[in-house]
Amino acid sequence: MSSALLPKPQMRRLLARRMKFHLFGAFFVSIGCAALYKFGVAEPRKRAYAEFYKNYDPMKDFEAMKAAGVFESAPPK
């Protein structure tokens, strides 16, 4: 009698049904992580580089390093 009260477990297509759910979940989580990285890391880094190179003078930087004695081939004056 007790076996009639319990529903039969699903044995067919169980993996396919669970896989569909997990594939959609993994897809949305990966899209979310990519968006967080793009807007949280990549874009601020691009802005920082653009701001740095906006007023960067490589000759002034070279002269400062030369005066500090960083280069062996260019003696300080």
Rank of each mutant, 00 (worst) to 15 (best):
S73N: 14
V29H: 01
V29D: 03
K60W: 07
M11W: 08
S2G: 15
D61P: 00
G69I: 01
M11D: 14
S73I: 06
R13K: 15
G40C: 01
A42P: 00
F27P: 00
A48P: 00
L14K: 15
F71T: 06
F27W: 13
R13C: 07
F28A: 01
L15Y: 15
M11R: 14
F71P: 00
L14T: 15
K46H: 08
D57E: 13
F62R: 09
P9E: 13
P9A: 11
C33E: 03
I31Y: 09
Y49D: 02
P44E: 00
M59C: 09
E63C: 06
L15H: 15
L14M: 15
F21Q: 05
G40L: 03
Y37K: 02
Y37Q: 00
P44Q: 04
F21V: 14
R45K: 14
L23D: 04
Y56F: 15
A64C: 12
K77W: 10
A68Y: 07
Y49T: 03
A68K: 10
H22Y: 15
Y49S: 07
Y53E: 02
S30W: 00
E43Q: 07
D61L: 06
P44W: 03
D57C: 09
A50Q: 06
C33H: 12
F27T: 12
V70C: 01
K77G: 11
V29S: 06
L5V: 06
S30K: 00
G32C: 07
F27V: 07
K77D: 13
A26G: 06
L6G: 02
R18K: 13
R47H: 11
A50H: 07
V70E: 10
K38G: 05
R45Y: 03
M19W: 05
L5E: 04
A67E: 15
M59I: 09
R47Y: 01
S2F: 10
A35T: 04
N55C: 05
L23F: 12
M65K: 12
K54L: 08
F21A: 08
